[in-house]
Design a binder for these strands. Structure first.
Length: 483
RNA sequence: GGUCCCAUCGACUAGGGGUUAGGUCGCCACUCUUUCACAGUGAAAACACGGGUUCGAAUCCCGUUGGGACCGCCA
């Protein structure tokens, strides 16, 4: 257990770019688990400071998906809280205030280069094989020059004045001690020319003013921590504890990206991955409960109980779809059938099955063992809906058109005709009766039946299939081969 | 290229000075099921390399190599 002298407050701070990335989901999950485990608060803050990347409906989508997966927030745009507003775009004056304070304290300065000029500069630096970095030209502009430029209406940004020849050191809860020389740190833009803050400013200001105690976020942020520390320091604020979570990787070990598979949580949801499986799987990507714990199936409750930052891995984790599929299949097999049915119903649309029929539940029970994800349902329902059996394969046909099979089919038809309704048990009784009557048994008995009924050599258990097909269809399918 | 991070079976990982280096997915075999799948059993499969420290190193230190991330008026 962590040392919990102060009440833990963590935050998930996504920028609403349209969908929830699997990596974001894990960050959100770890924050949530840590907060609940520590009896702390989990905040949601929307980092919408990039006016060029606003996506309609993205926030609703994001919140909806997280909610669906069972990740809850104690403070945020929906639930409010004493530290609001929780949209950064509504906190502009706060950032401006602190940005001015930084300028007054000499920790930040005005700069007047245009975006184009900076592009040029970077290109040149790249060409010369040097590190791309702001050249600090505006660092030493005097007050007079600055005022004049502003009065002329020149657009400006405010940059962090990174001190030279210093070493910034910090302790990461996952990575340990990290040291970075200030000389390689760029004079980061803090306030953009449109008056919006950059991530770096807004993040620091908000984490401080929202009393965040632990920053849990992706490893890609680790190199900008020194900039943040400089801001905290200049403003005289305490630096929250940091935990940088390793990346989730593609098969080739690069950062998980589109192109090499789905990265959006909703893609997985749409394909019929169960939320329990998704959460369970994602939690184990870069985390594990540690020694002596070999159980792998963890509910959200279990995860909350067991989660600690110490057990978060320091190296990246490849997203292994095979294992997700296996885990999802496990959840599908063990789910309450009625609950599963509710989730599965949409996948029966357009399969030719009447979803209001209670047969659907029987079909689902029969095929769930085969499903890695719910969108595979249509593949498996074919045998229950086909009006006729089409046998492409001559070999299969041969098994049906011989004397032994004919005998069997005739006997079956006679027996089934005497029944009013076919259940799995009745099916079994009839088949063993036919076995006695005809003397045909083993493969010679079961294979022809299966093929006649389904057109395939394998599939779910025959009694279950028979019950679902019903008397009329069974007799009709058998008759085709009986003479 | 610079800086930072990382390194146990193909993948997720346990172990963190003395272990036959354990588990899970996947792969393979067998058993069960008169099918496939499920389930069960078993097999193959790893400490990147080189130096130190130590009686002893997968484990601690240094280096090398390899991989990754970051280097925007994006987050």
């Amino acid at each position: 257990m962590e040392n919990l002298t102060d009440d833990v407050r963590v935050r998930f701070a996504p920028s609403p770019t349209g969908f929830v990335h699997v990596g974001s989901l894990r960050t959100a999950l770890f924050n949530y688990l840590f907060a609940r485990h520590s009896n702390g608060k989990n905040l949601l803050r929307i980092e919408d400071t990039d006016q060029t990347r606003i996506v309609e409906g993205a926030v609703e989508n994001l919140i909806g998906n997280l909610e669906l997966l069972g990740i809850e927030f104690d403070e945020g745009p929906m639930q409010g809280g004493s530290c609001g507003p929780y949209y950064q775009s509504e906190r502009l004056d706060i950032y401006k205030k602190y940005c001015n304070e930084l300028v007054e304290k000499g920790a930040a300065y005005y700069a007047f280069e245009t975006a184009d000029e900076l592009d040029e500069m970077r290109k040149l630096q790249q060409l010369e094989g040097r590190q791309t970095m702001y050249n600090g030209r505006a660092r030493d502009l005097n007050e007079e020059e600055v005022r004049k430029n502003i009065e002329c209406g020149m657009p400006y940004v405010i940059r962090l004045k990174v001190p030279r020849d210093e070493e910034i050191k910090f302790d990461d809860l996952i990575k340990g001690t990290i040291k970075i020389e200030t000389n390689i740190i760029d004079d980061q833009v803090l306030l953009k020319s449109d008056g919006f803050p950059t991530y770096h400013l807004a993040n620091v200001v908000d984490d401080h003013s929202m009393n965040i105690t632990h920053i849990i976020r992706g490893e890609e942020w680790i190199t900008s921590v020194p900039k943040h520390i400089l801001i905290y320091r200049a403003l005289g604020w305490d630096v929250p504890k940091m935990a940088h979570v390793p990346l989730i990787l593609n098969r080739d070990k690069s950062k998980l990206s589109k192109r090499q598979g789905d990265v959006a949580v909703e893609d997985y949801l749409r394909k019929g991955y169960l939320k329990e499986a998704l959460i369970n799987f994602i939690a184990f990507l870069g985390w594990n409960p540690g020694e002596g714990e070999e159980e792998e199936f963890f509910s959200m409750e279990d995860l909350i109980k067991k989660f600690t930052l110490e057990k978060v891995q320091s190296s990246g984790a490849v997203f292994n779809i095979d294992k997700l599929n296996w885990m999802n299949n496990h959840y599908i097999k063990n789910y309450d059938v009625d609950k599963l049915l509710v989730l599965a119903l949409p996948y029966f649309e357009n399969t030719g099955i009447d979803t209001s029929d209670d047969k659907v539940k029987k079909i689902l029970s029969a095929i769930r063992v085969y499903l890695n994800k719910l969108d595979e349902i249509p593949l498996h329902v074919k045998i229950f809906v086909q009006p006729e059996i089409e046998l492409e394969d001559e070999k299969l046909k041969e098994l049906l058109i011989n004397e032994s099979s004919k005998k069997v089919f005739k006997a079956l038809i006679e027996n089934f005709s005497n029944e009013t309704e076919i259940t799995a048990d009745i099916y079994k009784t009839i088949v063993s009766k036919v076995q006695n009557e005809t003397g045909v048994k083993g493969k010679n008995l079961f294979k022809p039946i299966r093929i006649a009924l389904t057109g395939s050599e394998n599939g779910p258990e025959l009694p279950a299939i028979a019950e679902i097909l019903g008397k009329d269809k069974i007799i009709r399918f058998f008759k085709r081969w009986a003479d």
